[in-house]
């Protein structure tokens, strides 16, 4: 029962991609589209295999993974602390929140020229913008989670003499956990999106984004698609992992779907 349910959901999620690939192959075979505009699935798979076996593609993947994970971790740790801080202190909220919300309106990509002028063209600004992309959703969701702790929980804790530290660790954080988990999942998606910007706008020789760039320069459409599919699949896989971890950490308590 359980297994068939899971199989069903896996089948469901790959249904659309499979249909699209079949459609794609069909359009190509029927001769509707020139291969310079859109290569065939067959070509893409061939390019994929060639690059993975011969052209150190995995090295680029690992470099991009390191880049995105570094930014992501810096972003979620600092974003969590910031969200917790302005969530716990009304004064801190008054001081930081308006500026934070104003700065948030500016696309991170808009900061890239400034950041590059400060730090130069190297790995540091790339990680910084990925971290910034992860920072916003986790900060906002942590803040919301902390602020939405039911008043009664806090009151009950104070009635039973909980001090501030225990109140935070035993009441506020557990209560805010589902919201924080949502923030982490969103932050991961933002980090992956920003990885492309980081690699395309702050030039480098290493990374999946640069492979896409090279594909463009060489008019190698298949190479571009390999890059896009790789990023998409990795992002999807990592988001799924994070969701599973978040669910497990919650021990099925609050993220539960039944309620």
């Amino acid at each position: 029962m359980n297994i068939s349910k899971r199989t069903k959901s896996v089948l469901g999620s790959i249904l659309l991609p499979v249909v699209l690939i079949i459609l794609w192959q069909y359009i190509f075979s029927a001769g509707y589209i020139a291969s310079a505009i859109l290569p065939s699935p067959h070509q893409v798979i061939k390019t994929f295999i060639i690059h993975f076996t011969e052209n150190e593609y995995s090295f680029h993947i690992i470099s991009s993974l390191k880049r995105v994970l570094s930014g992501f971790f810096i972003g979620i740790v600092s974003g969590f602390l910031f969200g917790l801080f302005i969530g716990l202190s009304r004064t801190a909220e008054k001081i930081f929140s308006p500026s934070f919300n104003a700065v948030r309106q500016i696309s991170i990509i808009g900061w890239i020229p400034l950041i590059v002028m400060w730090f130069g063209v190297n790995e540091f600004p790339r990680i910084i913008i990925i971290a910034a992309a992860a920072f916003y959703p986790i900060a906002l969701n942590t803040f919301a989670g902390v602020r939405n702790v039911p008043r009664e929980y806090v009151e009950l804790a104070s009635v039973y003499g909980y001090n501030r530290l225990k109140l935070i660790t035993r009441i506020i954080l557990p209560s805010a956990l589902p919201s924080i988990a949502t923030g982490i999942t969103l932050a991961l998606g933002m980090s992956w999106a920003m990885l492309m910007a980081a690699e395309l706008f702050i030039p480098t020789n290493i990374g999946i984004g640069t492979r896409i760039q090279i594909g463009r320069e060489k008019f190698n459409m298949a190479l571009i698609l390999v890059g896009i599919i790789t990023v998409g699949s990795l992002g999807f896989a990592m988001t799924s992992i994070v969701e599973i971890i978040a669910h497990a950490a919650d021990r099925g308590r609050i993220l539960r779907k039944e309620i």
Binding site: P150, E152, Y153, E155, L156, V159, I171, P174, S175, L177, D250, R253, I254
Partner: peptide, 12 residues
């Protein structure tokens, strides 16, 4: 205290 508004903690 057993007050209606004091629900159980859902994570415990």
């Amino acid at each position: 205290y057993v007050f209606q508004q004091y629900a159980l903690f859902p994570w415990r």
